[in-house]
Simulated scan of single mutants.
Amino acid sequence: MSCVTFWTPQQRARLREAMDAPSVATFASPQVGESKLRRIAAMAASGDLRVRESAALNVHVPAEVLELLAGDAEMSVRCCVARSPRATPEVLRRLAADASAPVRRWTAAHPATPAGVLDALADDPDLGVREVVAWNRRWPAS
């Protein structure tokens, strides 16, 4: 038996009213302005690799910042670029040729990695990369 059956009519009415009220999620976030994009670009130039990783994973990261970070000396930053939903096919193509197997694995996992790039990664010397390509190909096309 549900505890709702013990509620008074007034409590049930308040619950119905609350369910009809607009939720906070219906309000739009503020527009992303030039200052936000400048801050992300400044983060990408930081000496702290964690800050650069954060820039790469930011939902508003500009394509040119991802292109810059795709050449970062730190493998973890390049992995974050490969994980970014905003990574372009060109950036993913570049990362597919990375010397680091973890970067190539994340590239193989990305849903926007072009089919030709996945074909090339299917012959990668690293078993993990090949396994991720097989995993990626099992997902239905969107």
Rank of each mutant, 00 (worst) to 15 (best):
T88W: 09
A96R: 01
R86W: 08
P22S: 11
P111W: 04
A82G: 07
T113E: 02
A13N: 08
V77F: 05
C3P: 12
E53F: 06
T88Q: 10
V133K: 05
C3T: 13
A109W: 01
A18W: 12
T88E: 08
V81K: 06
L69N: 00
K36M: 13
A96M: 06
R83P: 03
D72Q: 06
D72I: 10
R138T: 15
N136C: 08
R14G: 08
R78Y: 11
Q31I: 11
D126S: 08
R94S: 07
D124L: 05
M19Q: 13
V81W: 06
R52E: 01
G71T: 04
P140T: 14
A82I: 03
L95D: 00
W135T: 10
D48A: 06
S76L: 12
D72T: 07
A112V: 00
S84R: 01
V51C: 05
V32Y: 12
S142C: 11
V103A: 01
S100K: 02
L37R: 08
A73C: 11
R50Y: 15
L68H: 12
F6G: 12
A41W: 06
R52Y: 08
A109S: 09
N58C: 09
P22E: 11
P22T: 09
V91H: 05
R137A: 03
L37I: 09
A134S: 11
R83S: 12
V133Y: 08
S2E: 14
L121K: 00
H60P: 03
S142K: 11
L66R: 04
A101C: 02
M43L: 11
E64V: 10
A63I: 13
H60R: 06
R52G: 03
P62T: 03
S54G: 13
R12L: 15
W135E: 14
V51H: 02
V4C: 15
R14A: 15
L37C: 06
C79P: 00
P111K: 05
H110M: 06
R83K: 12
A122V: 05
